[in-house]
Design a protein around this nucleic acid. Structure first.
Length: 599
RNA sequence: GAUCUCGUAGCUCAGCUGGAUAGAGCAGCAGAUUUCUAAUCUGCCGGUCGGGGGUUCGAGUCCCUCCGGGAUCACCA
């Protein structure tokens, strides 16, 4: 039980005893910093039951609590607010409760959740927008896992279609047999290079055609290279052996490249779907929908669903020639997944430009009679923009994921060296630390922002390492680990298992800052649960920052292992510090961010 | 045009289901290190919470309306 729910319970008891009031009226929140107290009861909603003034009500409840319940040490009344303080014994007990290694994690919830994220196209390398998607998805999956759900991380690779044919035809035309091995280029970048080459050639052809008097629409259709790409798509669909082999080969390069990027990011998947396998799914559903009268067929043979009664429009599900579209496929994969994994929840991490698509998807599934439609959650996130606006591949303003990560790591190294943090370490240790810090800065920068907001990224001002940043939090952890090493043998504290001797501190007087830290440590669990319910890594990020900030003040104000500190104090302060380090590590872990032992 | 979404300090962002005098970080200014990591800490400066109505004991938060940014409204995925 968290302190807040405890206080809520106690207040409910008081109100029942004093006024016979409905416990649902009890409103308890954390006491604001400028007032003394731990938790605050708001009395305004209770006045009808108490039939007294706010101040009198607060006074009465406070006195009742003081007399009849354990742990309430003190109270004060300001206007209609009753500020309650819990006693030291209670807080010491809390410290014990949060010392369990499993604290912050729920055991098996019995639920199965799939999180789909990344879902790249195979015609170009990953960029900053993908980074936001991937980091969100991975973090949401980690949080889901921490909430006790059996979690399946899924990637749906868009490996087929005209876009990959564009890269393929350009490679055939201009590639001269170039491979990742021959060029030393990462496979995804190599294929991306030909995607760009296609675009350049295509533009040139359009220009030429329009100069010869073609109108633009016609030129776009008739440009030879586009015709060739379309022919290639037809051949691919007919499983032409040569084209199929080329497709497999070039996609193989891309996958090798993606794997490297994913590995550096520290993310992974449990299940990879390929659209080339799934793009025909959903056709049977269309038949079922027709039979149920949910869909209808037009004269040309195409199949539609009419959603105008729900305030949406009509949506195509099957073309006149019987081929399927994106929606058809997504319906099919959703049904397949829920069946195959017996999912309780399905989370799609997909950009907000597809809000409408998912609205329609859920509605159609509901109309088809799938009750689990309500358990589909579209984790919709906003664009990452540059100061001058959207990233545009044509203008070369796309921020490449690999480049960005490399830059962040390089910046981390510069700063570390400047600050002399790496002295006396081996090269391998230096690399490790710089990687952790550089990526930590990047990941935190992206994850601390509410997903649904568009965020701006300024490549010219590199991401900060001071203040509300990943490195700030990592530094706090490293600092505490440094204390642990210093305490070393005498305390017997191993870095990963904080001492569990908090019982020994019974009767100890706690400083306000210590209570504040224990209070914050108590909030890890509820924060994780809330982040799980709301699919919000940002909540965890903000929690980690607040905790680190609070700790740094404590560290500054109170000596921990310094000369002259009493042994008891040393042991308690260190134990508390180690709990903070542990909470930081857990929270950051849920964001997919590592924390170094030193930095 | 319709639907959705966002608008909080110069900049980047918090603000839980409505609760006390709206908070951080960066930038700017002024300070703190003989002793545990200064990637830290302290103080100052900075706000008509886009505007206007309404509901409420109480609104940044809920409702309406207007203004501004973005997204979507493809037989692309």
């Amino acid at each position: 039980m968290t302190p807040e729910t405890l206080v809520t319970d106690l207040c409910a008891q008081a109100l029942a005893a004093l006024y016979g009031a409905d416990p649902a009226l009890v409103q308890v929140s954390k006491t604001r910093k400028e007032f003394s107290g731990d938790y605050t009861l708001v009395t305004f909603p209770l006045l009808k039951a108490s039939r007294k003034s706010p101040e009198q009500t607060a006074q009465e409840v406070g006195e009742w609590l003081l007399k009849n319940t354990p742990h309430i040490r003190d109270f004060n009344v300001i206007k209609g607010f009753l500020n309650l303080s819990l006693d030291g014994a209670y807080w010491l007990g809390r410290l014990e409760g949060i010392s369990a290694p499993s604290y912050g994690f729920t055991c098996d919830s019995g639920r199965t959740v799939m999180v789909e994220y990344s879902s790249p196209n195979t015609n170009k390398p990953l960029h900053l927008g993908h980074l936001r998607n991937i980091l969100l998805g991975y973090s949401v999956a980690q949080i889901s896992e921490a909430c006790g759900h059996n979690t399946v991380k899924a990637n749906l690779v868009n490996d087929r279609g005209i876009h990959i044919c564009k890269s393929m035809i350009a490679w055939q035309l201009f590639g001269d047999g170039e491979t990742p091995e021959s060029s030393g280029m990462k496979g995804d970048h190599l294929v991306g290079k030909y995607y760009v080459a296609f675009d350049r050639a295509y533009k040139a052809e359009i220009k030429e055609l329009t100069e010869r008097g073609c109108n633009e629409e016609q030129a776009k259709r008739e440009a030879p290279i586009m015709q060739q790409a379309q022919e290639m798509l037809r051949l691919w669909e007919a499983k032409d052996p040569e084209i199929y082999a080329l497709w497999q080969r070039m996609n193989g390069w891309v996958y090798a490249g993606f794997d490297k990027t994913y590995a550096l990011m520290g993310v992974s998947f449990d299940k990879t779907y390929y659209e080339s396998d799934t793009y025909l799914l959903g056709k049977a559903l269309v038949q079922k929908g027709l039979e149920k009268g949910v869909f209808y067929k037009r004269d040309d043979g195409s199949v539609w669903v009419d959603l105008t009664a729900d305030g949406l429009d009509e949506k195509l599900l099957l073309r006149a020639d019987g081929t399927s579209v994106y929606m058809t496929q997504d319906l099919g994969t959703a049904v397949q997944r829920f069946n195959e994994y017996r999912l309780d929840d399905m989370v799609y991490v997909v950009g907000n430009e597809q809000n409408y698509h998912f609205q329609v998807l859920k509605l159609i599934l509901k109309k088809l009679g799938y009750a689990w439609s309500d358990h589909i959650f579209h984790l919709s996130y906003g664009m990452v923009e540059l100061p001058e606006g959207k990233m545009k591949s044509r203008e070369g303003t796309v921020v490449d994921a690999d480049d960005l990560m490399a830059e962040m790591i390089a910046t981390a190294r510069e700063m570390s060296e400047e600050l002399g943090k790496l002295d006396g370490l081996t090269d391998a240790e230096k690399d490790e630390i710089c990687r952790i810090i550089g990526l930590g800065a990047l990941k935190y920068f992206i994850l601390k922002v509410d997903p649904k907001k568009t965020m701006t990224f300024n490549p010219k001002e590199s991401i900060d390492f001071n203040g509300n940043t990943g490195p700030f939090i990592q530094y706090t952890h490293a600092r505490i680990k440094s204390l642990a090493r210093r305490a070393g043998g005498t305390q017997g504290a191993s870095p990963d298992t904080p001492e569990n001797d908090t019982k020994a501190f019974q009767g100890r007087e706690l400083e306000p800052k210590e209570i504040e830290l224990i209070k914050m440590l108590s909030e890890l669990s509820p924060t994780v649960e809330q982040a799980g319910r709301e699919y919000s890594p940002a909540l965890i990020a903000n929690y980690a920052f607040d905790l680190a900030k609070e700790y740094n003040q404590y560290y500054h104000d109170y000596p921990i292992l310094k000369e002259g500190v009493a042994d008891d104090d040393k042991r308690f302060r260190l134990a508390l510090s180690l709990q903070v380090a542990s909470a930081i590590k857990k929270a950051m872990g849920l964001l997919g961010i590592e924390v170094p032992e030193r930095m």
